[in-house]
Amino acid sequence: MTTTASGPPVQAPARRRTRRRTTDRGFNRAFRWIAVGSGVLMLAVLAAVALFLLVQAWPALTASEDDLAASVPRYPADTSLLAYVGPLVFGTLLAAALALALATPVAMGIALFISHYAPPKLAQVLGYLVDLLAAVPSVIYGLWGIFVLGPAVLPVWEWLGQVLGWFPLFAGTVSPTSRVLATVSVVLAVMILPIITAVSREVFLQTPKLHEEAALALGATRWEVVRTAVLPFGRSGVISAAMLGLGRALGETMAVLMILSPGFLYSFKILTSAQHQTIAAYIAADFPEASGLAVNTLVATGLVLFVITLAVNMGARAIVARRKEFSGAN
């Protein structure tokens, strides 16, 4: 013990001096290789996902426009695959962006509430409650969205359509069935609240206590402490949290599939039905009845979704990683 107390990198010299039997060394090496192998396997799985999607999508990527139009049910004549996927990508991004716009402020509020406002003893339990929202299966969100939320928000949508109809998002006829992108966005926002909250909460809790106390000593109110010490410190964390939420919203399937009345247009009218469709819901809706080239086309759109979510998540993680290097001590 006394010898190891001096230097910080203890493990290497300590191990060198241990009594080694050959079997131990064999096990040691085997165990290490198994562990390394698992790590490599993780990378292999991700590569495999991309590879197999690409293999299955290949026939659709290389097929002629006429072949696609003949064998894919919705495929209009004289359209490239890119032009076909375009509205789906647009719908996916629009739904996710709206959900993000709704969820981020609320999630920040909840995170601040749990980290700085709620009584400390209650804070953990309240945190669990928010986490429970993440545990609810998406099919239940779908049922709830149709039977409870849809009817409940319809008057709000009608009011928005009347009062703010000049605004592009709220233009068009308000659908009487409430199966519109706006309703979907609200459900998606509820679904991504927990993940944004969880990450923001962690970041806010890491705010150096000295900064907060310094602000308090200058006579700052609670909100001023938050504004001057907590928020600047947590900004990049909140951004990456929001991007993680965005990634989740992009890929959500069941709630969209069950609630949205789909259409394949570039349209901003979120209160009008049959304007948008997301990639994930499109796949789930058409996959059961698809055969032949139609399956390849569906996998190709899945590949597009995979690339988009991968890009968003990589962006988010890159921001988090950079932040870790900055803050150093943590």
């Binding site: 993780m42 990378l43 799985v45 991700l46 495999a48 996902v49 197999f52 999607l53 299955q56 993680l244 990634g247 989740r248 992009l250 890929g251 959500e252 399937t253 994930a280 796949i283 789930a284 569906l298 996998v299 899945g302 979704l305 995979f306 979510t309 991968l310 968003v312 998540n313 990589m314 988010a316 993680r317 988090v320 990683a321």
Partner: peptide
């Protein structure tokens, strides 16, 4: 890094894979 990225794979894409 890629484990973090993988947590964001959409579930439908996992099914397709």
């Amino acid at each position: 890094f890629f484990v973090d990225v993988m947590t964001g794979i959409p579930s439908i894409v996992a099914g397709l894979f």
